[in-house]
Design a protein around this nucleic acid. Sequence first.
DNA 1: TATCCTTATCGTCGAGCTGACGATAAGGGA
DNA 2: TCCCTTATCGTCAGCTCGACGATAAGGATA
Lengths: 228, 228
Amino acid sequence: MIERPHLSFELAVDLVVCTVRGAAFEVLLVERGVEPYLGRLALPGGFLRAGEDLIDAAVRELAEETGLSGLDPYLEQVRTYAAPDRDPRGRVATVAYLAILPDLPMPTAGTDAAGARWEPVRRGGLGLAFDHDRILADAVEQARRLLENTPLATAFCRTEFTIAELRAVYEAVWGVPLDPRNFHRKATGLPGFVVPTGEMRSPPTGRPAALFRRGPATALYPPLQRPA
Amino acid sequence: MIERPHLSFELAVDLVVCTVRGAAFEVLLVERGVEPYLGRLALPGGFLRAGEDLIDAAVRELAEETGLSGLDPYLEQVRTYAAPDRDPRGRVATVAYLAILPDLPMPTAGTDAAGARWEPVRRGGLGLAFDHDRILADAVEQARRLLENTPLATAFCRTEFTIAELRAVYEAVWGVPLDPRNFHRKATGLPGFVVPTGEMRSPPTGRPAALFRRGPATALYPPLQRPA
DNA sequence: TATCCTTATCGTCGAGCTGACGATAAGGGA
DNA sequence: TCCCTTATCGTCAGCTCGACGATAAGGATA
């Protein structure tokens, strides 16, 4: 084994911040203000600071980019990218994080979020800077998989939500329509997935719906499988 | 945004090399020959070299540590660890890779593999150096999950294998007994999982078993779920 | 050779789950 | 009051699952 020092890297964290707005699965992007890729859309992110662990940097960047404070975001590591030529400035490794937010109004004035905007996730990619299209694709696939096996969908919703809102999350992220009656049966029947609050909410039209909160389960068993 | 340069890291790759030997789920460990953690068991790994991507370093380390060349290993990224205090020598980020090998006789003389040995995976950890117990636990959980959804189990077997050998992989990794008849039905019925070669193999005792190869499927649908 | 042991493979059966879809409930608006 | 919309509950045939019986096909042994 060769003695140190070795190759030196800069370590960054890139965020794939996802939400569901209306019927659309959207991701938060920023327009780059510096070279390289000046003017191109990219995932928000930044470099680690002294004393920070990866998750610390991800939480900090998320707060900076969204301008939202005090939220309890769902954050999960996706994977790490370190190809020698992925950044023309030198050797930069980036750790991708998947962040899930409910559809919140975002403050934009006077923050980093001023240059941030939501874009619908399209298959085929969005023409992002660096290898961010690939990172986005990996994160989206991870989100789709996590919807099957974990209560991740509740992170797209506010504290209290209806079954229809939860179903809209699955439909938007998976990109498939689901039968409302079968989905209702499965979602309310899965142990620990959702718990009723006893309250009701009247949508703009139609019968009022019961409200639920996220349940104690950390995994869905059996999983809610995507249709073939 | 602050201009560069930023905090500098060294980037390592650590390998969780798994196999199934007999009925045991085992992992490849090395005894550390230098400080820190001199003499303690650790995951094999090493630092990235100039021009290498992560997967290149993982493949190179795997060849060095096992002494095996020309094998086509299954390698998959697990996650990245970069806590500020995880390495007393400084800021070292490590990307963990899961590697799956069939039960092969390993050459040991005159290679890095001389100090390597297989240890059964135990719950509660193995008392490894650094944060390697945590890394091992994460990788093992990933392997258990991949067994459900992908043909990963075939990577534990040689090119040709019997259904009983495949079942032994599931039983060892999951740590649960499986019904041979039901497993046979599901494994042979899953589209693209295994394909019969037409050959037979006689085990030391009992009726000869049909041989199979890995099929073309990259995902198991429906998944082979772990028992509750 | 006949018997037994072992493992492989095929069948059977009832419970439970799935998707398709009918029926009813409960709000607002015309 | 009628109608439109969404929520929620039921029904039902088909499928899958786990438990387990039955048979096949080797070698070992009496």
